[in-house]
Every structure is written in structure tokens, then in C-alpha cells.
Write a protein that binds this DNA or RNA. Structure first.
Lengths: 334, 334
DNA sequence: CTGTTAGCGCTTTCAT
DNA sequence: ATGAAAGCGCTAACAG
């Protein structure tokens, strides 16, 4: 009932090998034969079976993508970059959400490997030894995407989170702010959390401003936690004149909390974020932020993976994409 | 170099069939044998090859998902619903962006079918005869997700777009508005476009308000087009007292355009949207809108697909999920 | 409860 | 330029 390469061969009066050749665009086929085969394919409605092909050739033209949460705008943008480039090189992607839960990450990595993906793109939280072990249990190339490993042994594409935070806070400082609150993510998260926190501290230090831990609150990257943190800051006897949020979403929460308290942004309190999500320019005042090239991170990491899969030499296996300060209207000088 | 089921069999001193049985949790294996096999698997670091399994069993435990754009928050939410349920039933998903371009849609459908997916979830624009033909070229179950076909012959999960629009506009009318502008999507798009436009007209008609085509503008679903449309409305000699936007993103654009013009929402102009995207509650004033259960659309359609794939009987192959008016602060009575 | 034996549909030497 | 044949790694009767 399903038509196979064998049926086509018989119909065209050639061998399976020849059919295989024309399907795979092998030049060693007489044009006339090729034509006959195409006609047989057409007549029979033949569709090559990629699973059989995968078994025989040991290539699936499929790559695995583990992503924390596709419903998160940041990651969705990365995913789009990945898929566009994958598509360009005729790969398909199997997408797995991990919620940054280690146990689930390891599980999906193994599933993906069982499915014989030709390569793997990993976005997640920390890359632990258990991850490394799961990775090394196969020999397909793997690139870290918007993530890095401490050891620095794996190919990766990321931005400089510490530098991005540093630049954001430095901007605040250059506008004359000295009391700067930070809404951080969890310090357990190496990239969005810890690194940005470090950038905040370094900027303060560079400017000779004493670090004061009452000026940092830990949020969960979400809007609501940004609001809560800002509310806390507003109640301080010496409230900050500016707030640096580790993500735009928290920054926007902060803006609204400040406005809801009857104060003005940036009149009373300046706010700056990191990410440059779509919403950043859709809020009033529009958010000043440090842009991350999310689409590019996805695109570049997929491109890197294609090179690795083709065993091409890559000059640079750890790439850091540049970030950029986007000045809008949520920061004023004091 | 890769360890196969045969190696495990030899190592454990049993047959391939037995190894296959323990790997597939077939109960017909003596516990002691099972143990021996597990040990051999452990010792050898055996990982079953899902491609070979797929070829032999004609099942890949993989489903194809064609989606317009994963970077679009609405679809990303649907995708998350799909993946969660897929994961629950041990399926993986291959994700393909189509940008609602028919040619690309057909192409990825065929690729997915070549990859022998066990089922297909299709989100897109119109479902044309060409689509139907591509679908029918295989015998895997297919469900339309957030989309319907005119003919109504295919399983689908969607909401009642016309009804959602009707409810939104009716709300405006019940608040006393008579001059109601609509920011529509393209009328070529059956769901988000045409159906919502029809709902708008029906609400007007029901209330005995004459339809005036100067009060409708076509946008492209994006923020900027919402702004432009609102600017147009504000310049009318008899400007609308309320605006209905076919999507929240355009509604938010409208709000900002109105505010930028020095007017107040909802003091001078009320605004209502459809979708209930995250941003709707993150904007000031918070947006009144008709909520679409995007996550559920994904989850329910995937659930339906699992039933179809298992050849279980389904009572209802066309499901319409309920929408809900979310009253916030962007609508006032006139 | 366990083993034997055919394939699943295709690619890929190796001949010719 | 084309064909023959041997797998790829696994499942699924069928026997026993």
C-alpha cells in the first residue's frame, strides 16, 4: 500500500540504486534514465521514507533543540533564528521545553540522542557535570546557545551578560545617579542572574560607589516580581533614584509600580533594563535598555552547528555577540 | 563502535528479542532475565536507536507542527500547550515555521510526512484545496489548530472568532458607544481577519447602528499599524468614541497613539482588543479584551491528535473553545 | 518465558 | 551509467 523505492524501480525498469541516485541528485545518471524515473515517481506518487534513509545513511537531517520555555518571548526569538537557519540548510528541529529543570534537561537530551539527531543546540541554566556526561555519551556535535559552561570547553554562542549589565549601570552612573537599586534574577542562574549581578557590582565599584545590599532585590524575571521589588525600593527611607533590572520584563513591572505610586519615570526614578524585548518600545515611557541580539544568537549557533556537523573547521568555537545600549526615555539625569 | 541490541544480547547471553522485550517493558520476561539484560545495557552503555525502531515498527513517536511564526507570542503559547501534552504522551514535536505562506506550508507538510511523523498539527491561514491534497497524500491523522477549513471536514480546535468580536463590540455598545471604529486584520485571513470583522458588523447590526466603512481600517496585526489606524480615527471630523481592535497588539498601539495625541483612554476614547496577550495587563490603562485560551488550544488539539493516532474514537472532532471577556480599565461608558 | 527469522525502505560499496 | 547485494538496528510474528 505504501509505495517504496522498489516499486518505483520496477515501474521505471531500473534498479533501486538508480532510483536512489536520482532522488539524491547524484549526477551519475543518464538524463533519459532520470526522466523515466521521475515519471515513475510521479505516476506512483512516491515519497521517500526519511526514516529508512536515516537508518541506512546514519543521518537524519534533524537537530535537537532544548529550550527552557518556548512561550517566553526571549527564547521564542532565539528559536526563530535557529529554525530559519536550520531550514536554510535543510534541517528540521525537534523542540523540547525543559523549564531549566536539570532532570528534565538530561532526560530530553537523551531522548534527542536516541532519535539520532545530527546535532544538538542546548539552551538552559547551568551546564553541570551531569550535562557534560550526557553530552559526551554521544558523538554528535553540540553547541550551547545563550548559555556557557564554566569550563569553557564546549562550543557556544552567547552575549556578555556581565558587560551588558555593566554598561546599563554605567549609563545610570554617568547620568549622575549614585543610589542605584538592582532587581536581579536568582544568583544561581549563571547568565541572566549571577553575571548581571556581577556587572552591577563592578560598575558601582568602578565609579567608587559603595555596594549596599539593601539596594538589591532578587526577582524571578517576571513582571510581578519587578513590581514588588520596586515597591520595596520606594519604601526605603533613602530610596534609589534609579533602578537597574536584570530583565526588561521586571523593568516594566518596576515602571508601573512607580507610576502606580504616583511617581514619575524618569522624573522621580529612572529605570533601565536588559534584553530589549518588543514590549520595551511599547510602554510609556519607552524603556531604555541594553539590547541582546536574540535572533542572531539562535541563527549564529545553528550556523555554527551546521559547520560542526559537516566537520568543517571553525575558527572560533566560542562566540560572544555584541550587545548595545538602546537609549529611550526611561532614564533621566539627576 | 555503536553498541546495538545485538551486542547487548550477546553480553547478556539472551536473544535480541528478549532485549527488545525488556527495553519495551514487555511483561513477558522473567525478572531474573530482565535484570541480566539491564546489567548488560548498563555495562555497555546501550542506547536504543529510535530510527531503527521507527523503521521496524512504523511509528516514530514524533508529530509535526506547522506554525506561522514561533516568535509570535500567541503562537508560542499554543506551541507550549502542544509540547506539554506531547511530552506527557511521550511524543516529540518537529516544529516548522511557515509565515502563513502557502507554498512554504505545503513544502513543510511534505517534509514532515517524509519524516514519517505519526500525526500532524496544522496552524495556518486558509486551508485550501492544495492543503487538503497534501494532507490526503498520507494517512496519518491531522488536526487543525487555531484554524478551520471552510468545508469543515477536518478535525480542528479553535475558538469562535466571530463570536469573540461580537462580544467585544457588544460590550462597547452596552456602554453607550455608537461611533465605534474597528482596526481589522486583512479580510483575506479567515479567522483573525474576516471572522472578527463579521462579528463587528453583526454587533452593530444587532444594535441597529448603521455600518460606516470610514470607521474601519485594515492593519497588519502589529503595534505600529494599530497606532496608525488610531491616528487616522482621531483626525476624523466625527471621531469614534471607542475602538475595537482585532488583536491586542493593535489595541495597545491604538492606546498609545491616543495618549500621544494628548487624549485619555478611556476618558476620551475607549479601546478594546481580542487575545489577552501578557502585555494586555502590563500596559496603562490595562486593556479590556476578549481572552483566547491559546495554551488550551494547543493542549486540546494535541490531546485530540493522540486519540486519533491511537485510533480511539473521538466524540467530537471539531472543538470550539470558549472565549471570555476580561474587563479591565480601557473601556468607559459614554 | 524465550529464541528464530523475516523484513521495515533505503544507501552504499563493489562490480560491470 | 547502472545493477546486485549487503546491511543499517530494530520489531514482530511464529515456534517452541
Amino acid at each position: 500500500m505504501t509505495v517504496t523505492i522498489y516499486d518505483v524501480a520496477r515501474e521505471a525498469g531500473v534498479s533501486m540504486a538508480t532510483v536512489s541516485r536520482v532522488v539524491n541528485n547524484n549526477p551519475n545518471v543518464k538524463p533519459q534514465t532520470r526522466k523515466k524515473v521521475y515519471e515513475a515517481i510521479e505516476r506512483l506518487g512516491y515519497r521517500p521514507n526519511a526514516v529508512a534513509r536515516g537508518l541506512a545513511s546514519k543521518k537524519t537531517t534533524t537537530v535537537g533543540v532544548v529550550i527552557p520555555d518556548i512561550a517566553n518571548a526571549i527564547f521564542a526569538e532565539v528559536a526563530r533564528g535557529i529554525e530559519d537557519i536550520a531550514n536554510m540548510y535543510h534541517y528540521n528541529i525537534i523542540l523540547c521545553n525543559s523549564d531549566k529543570r536539570k532532570e528534565k534537561e538530561i532526560r530530553v537530551i537523551n531522548t534527542l540522542l536516541e532519535k539520532q539527531v545530527d546535532g544538538l543546540l542546548f539552551m538552559g541554566g547551568a551546564v553541570t557535570d551531569d550535562h557534560l556526561q550526557a553530552f559526551s555519551s554521544s558523538n554528535v556535535p553540540i553547541v550551547l546557545c545563550a548559555t556557557t559552561d564554566e569550563k569553557g570547553t564546549m562550543p557556544s554562542v552567547d552575549i556578555d551578560h556581565e558587560g551588558a549589565a555593566y554598561d546599563a549601570v554605567s549609563r545610570l552612573i554617568s547620568e549622575g545617579h549614585r543610589r542605584i537599586g538592582m532587581i536581579s534574577g536568582t544568583l544561581q542562574d549563571p547568565a541572566n542572574g549571577f553575571a548581571r549581578y556581577q556587572g552591577y557590582k563592578r560598575a558601582l565599584e568602578t565609579a567608587g560607589i559603595a555596594f549596599d545590599e539593601r539596594y538589591v532585590r532578587i526577582g524571578n524575571y517576571k513582571y510581578e516580581s519587578g513590581m514588588e521589588a520596586a515597591q520595596y525600593f520606594l519604601e526605603l527611607e533613602e530610596r534609589p533614584t534609579a533602578i537597574f533590572a536584570a530583565t526588561d520584563e521586571m523593568a516594566i513591572g518596576a515602571i508601573h509600580a512607580i507610576q502606580d505610586a504616583g511617581l514619575s519615570v524618569p522624573g522621580d526614578v529612572s529605570v533601565i533594563g536588559v534584553d530589549n524585548i518588543r514590549m520595551a518600545s511599547m510602554v510609556r515611557p519607552q524603556l531604555t535598555t541594553v539590547a541582546q541580539p536574540m535572533y542572531d544568537i539562535g541563527a549564529v549557533s545553528m550556523r555554527l552547528l551546521t559547520k560542526l556537523m559537516k566537520k568543517e573547521s571553525v575558527e572560533q568555537a566560542k562566540v560572544v555577540l555584541p550587545h548595545e545600549l538602546i537609549v529611550r526615555r526611561s532614564v533621566a539625569s539627576v
